[in-house]
Structures are given as C-alpha cells and as structure tokens.
Amino acid sequence: MNPSLALFLQQLLNGLGIGMVYALIALGYTMVYGVLQLINFAHGEVFMVGGYLAITAAVFLTALFAHAPVVLVLTLMFVFSITGCAALGAFVERVAYRPLRGSPKLTALITSIGVSFFLQNAVMLIYGSKEQGLPPVLPDRLFFIGPISFSLMQAVILAVSVSLMIFLTGFVKNTKMGKAMRACAENAEAASLMGISVTRVVRATFVMGSGLAAVAGVLFSLNYESVNFHDGYLAGLKAFTAAVFGGIGSIPGAMIGGVLLGVFEGLGAGYISSGWKDVFAFVLLVVVLIFKPSGILGENIPEKV
C-alpha cells in the first residue's frame, strides 16, 4: 500500500476511536435536550465520574483477586460504573433540575454549570487532585491489517459503542418508554394529557444518558489508563460540540456528529498541527453554526428525543 495512504487510514482510525467516545457522551446531551430543552453542562462530569468508578472497581478487583479473568473485571467495571452514574444522573435530576421545572430555561442552565463545579470538586476532594492510574486490565495487543495497526482497545471501543447505538435506536423506536420519550420531545404538555408521566420520562432520560456517559467513561479510562477530575470538562465540551454539530435533539445526529468531530480533529492534529487540535473542533462548530444553525440532522428529523 502507498505509505501516505496507509498513514491517512491510520489517522482516520485514530480519530474514529475518540469520536466514538464523543458520540456516546453527545447522546446524553442530545437526549436531555430533546426532552427538556436543557443543555446539561454537568453531563461531562457524569462521564468523568464514570471513569473514576471504573478505576475504583478495577483497583478493588485486582487487589482482591490477583488473577481475576479479564472478562469478569471488565463486566464488573461496566456494571459498577453504569449503576453508579445512572443513580447519580437520577439524583442530580431530582435534586437540581426537577425543582426548577417551569422556571426560565436559563436558570436550569446555570444550575447545570453549578452541578458541574460541584461534581468536579467533590471528586477532587474524594480522590485527590492527582491523576488516578488504572491497573492494566486489557492486554496491550496490536493487530495489523497490512501496514495499519489497531489496538485491542480500539476494537473494544468500536464494538461497544456501535452495539450501544444500535440498542438505543431500537429502544427509542420500539419500546413503550422510547415512544413516550419521543412524545415528550414532540410536545410535553400534549404527552402528559395523553397520560404519559413526564416526570418518569425525564428521569428515564437522565438515567439512560448517564449510563451512556458511564460507558464512555469506562472506555476512556481503559484506553488512557488514567483519569483526572478535569477530564469531564474538555470531553464534555467536545461532546456538546458534537451534539450541536449533528443537530441537537437528534439521536443519529449525535452519533454522526461525535464520529465526524473525532475524525476531523484527528486529521487536523495529524496533518496540520496537533497544538491546534481543539481549535479545529471549535472552528468546525462555528462553521456549522454559520451555515446550518440546526446542525447536520437538526430539525429535519421530527422524532427528536
């Protein structure tokens, strides 16, 4: 294969991995926005908490059982982190957002920034300000297709994210709760007149969004093998960009937005300048907002959640 083509494909693959993580977080932003028209800025922090919970589970398990099978450790990391984050999401919704239902949207938005600070500093106080390392869980295996290499971790990220996205799409399309979510997104008042409990739908949305962020957090901590209480900030901002880029409120939009953002960033960093990586992400956002303010898939899709 032509070496520069191989390099290009390699960079594409690099971008795809982080893009999937962005997409998973972006889904939470977009789902909450769909139902409540609230940009939940604390969502990035939930992702970060997911990473910490995963590391806690891994440290605990590897300390307790020196030779625990990898699959078991991985499963428990996911279960622990998803349960914890889903509970956190439901709790935050109950304590911070539900009392503000019906107040101006800006109030809830500012509250979400407050929640974000609270979670960041709470985690810093609990775990300390130092980076937390993850004991190696997955073996460091590299696979090659011709000259292109990908790691076992990249394969896991792709497999987990894609199957979750398929599951989520099916859930929103086919289940009763999914239909209720779509109904609330369409018109919450009318939905409640039809006997749908908006409170329950909102709670379910937060729980699912936080669960997805937890999965992203686990994948992130597995891939980078360290977590810092700051990590939710930039990743959350990027995922928010991805959600807006794809069309906020649209589930397929968040997936596409996340993946495209990751790839775009990766190519920009690989070919132009890695110091400008964040700049590429936000320039992309500005350009999209200028030419298509509703995002790639925004508005055209009636069934936004």
Binding site: L7, Q11, G15, G17, L234, G270, S273, S274, G275
Partner: peptide, 20 residues
Amino acid sequence: HEGIAQGEKDFTPLLTRVKS
C-alpha cells in the same frame, strides 16, 4: 517540532505522524 494542548488526552494522531 510540534505542540500539544495541555489537558488533552488523545495524542495518537500526532504520534502516528512522529513515527512516520
């Protein structure tokens, strides 16, 4: 001679380029 952004986590695009 390249720069990275502090707080960033994913450097694989840059490292792929460095390797080349």
